[in-house]
Design a protein around this nucleic acid. Structure first.
Lengths: 224, 224
DNA sequence: CATATTTTGTGAGATATCTCATATAAAGTA
DNA sequence: TACTTTATATGAGATATCTCACAAAATATG
């Protein structure tokens, strides 16, 4: 995590992510800009952060260590969103690890000086409620989907959402993780789609052959 | 949903559920008490509620209709918690159905008169943030559990948590729903526990024979 | 360039879970 | 009481998904 001292970039990011709108007082002068390269941790497990972060560009994910030692991926964040807000709101909570997936830019407000003001700012609290609500809703929808539909439907939807000119090329290990299934199973399902003639495999990519069929498969997954 | 005009009960419930602590102004005189019998809806799908509810006694569940017409159970609420708070915070959201599972008591604040005040009350917003955070966290943990552990482990934990003098007697259809598995599968897993000698079946109940074995099974499920 | 490491791909066999059909028992109701 | 509905129970057969072991390809590193 590196402090970025590029004032014009800082201004630009504050603007494009509507950062200042999240507060009723002006945090423009005290928000520091940080860059976290892909793979690095924004918050380390168990280490209470000193800042309230706002992810203004990039993506991150949240982990949790289970009692059996396994590490579970529990949420994805994409900009814009707060990070470390739960630690601000309830200070008794275990601190979970948050890791950048892409190179990410974060606006950071020092808690030491701002904590009290934040906890009394209706504007900030309101937008936090809204964001938490949205996050919760999105998670719930994802949970339901995972529980309700087999991978083949979810994968079809994913393919249509992330294809680039009819081509899918991804880190499949990450895709498997994203869906919460084993890598092996993901490949089985890709193979099934190829088998059915909906996709063609080409080196490490898959090419869409029958978009209508994929749409049919993904139709169910929509939750409105 | 019936208005309950029992002033002493209303006072008692306000007290036992710390209702008044959720606001910085006094809502004591305007909060109405309602009773919703088990099975009845507190909020109907698509019908924007006129109150901010606070479940002070009882349990409820939240549904969502999928695009294919299926109805998915997406969350359980137990007292104390707000109901209808998302509709207050972001008024663009689809309204989901909330149904009482047990006879439930709700304190209700008319939104028409209180909306603005609530949205500007840091005390209320703070506790809402906290509750949303907790709810989200709990959901996430449940989700991870469902995804990570087979039913036999989760069921063992459930049995130990809900047994009464070593006896389990439940509406199994609801238990299946709670775990997000089919009724059939739930019975298979109960049968497996009997087969292994951890439980004994007695009419419609199961009796714990080997608590240590159940503890062993449920050990993994803890997420810290 | 050669070797080590990571990512990708495949097979085999097991387990978890589902759907559907059907039967019985229990509980509510005319 | 007879009838209807709801909860409980079980079998059969299918599907979704996992684990593990291993092979091949790609990428990084000395």
């Amino acid at each position: 995590m590196k402090r970025v001292r590029d004032e014009s970039l800082r201004q630009e990011l504050m603007e494009s992510s509507a950062y200042l709108d999240q507060f009723s007082f002006d945090v423009g002068s005290d928000a520091e800009l940080f860059m976290v390269p892909a793979g690095e941790y924004i918050i380390k497990e168990g280490v209470r952060p000193e800042y309230l972060f706002y992810l203004c560009r990039g993506r991150a994910r949240l982990f949790m260590t289970l009692s059996n030692g396994d590490v579970a991926l529990i949420d994805f964040f994409s900009a814009p969103c707060f990070i470390g807000e739960m630690e601000l709101i309830s200070d008794d909570r275990e601190v979970r690890a948050v890791q950048a997936i892409e190179d990410s830019y974060l606006l950071a407000l020092p808690l030491r000086r701002y904590r009290d003001r934040l906890l009394n700012d209706a504007c900030f609290l309101r937008s936090l409620c809204r964001l938490l609500g949205v996050k919760n809703y999105r998670n719930t929808v994802t949970f339901i989907r995972n529980q309700t539909f087999p991978l083949i439907n979810r994968l079809a939807a994913f393919i249509l959402m992330t294809e680039d000119q009819g081509v899918i090329r991804k880190e499949y290990a990450q895709v498997a993780e994203y869906f919460g299934v084993s890598y092996r199973h993901l490949l089985y399902v890709f193979a099934e789609l190829v088998e059915r003639g909906y996709l063609r495999k080409e080196k490490k990519s898959y090419v869409i052959l029958d978009r209508a069929a994929l749409e049919e498969l993904s139709r169910d997954v929509e939750v409105r």
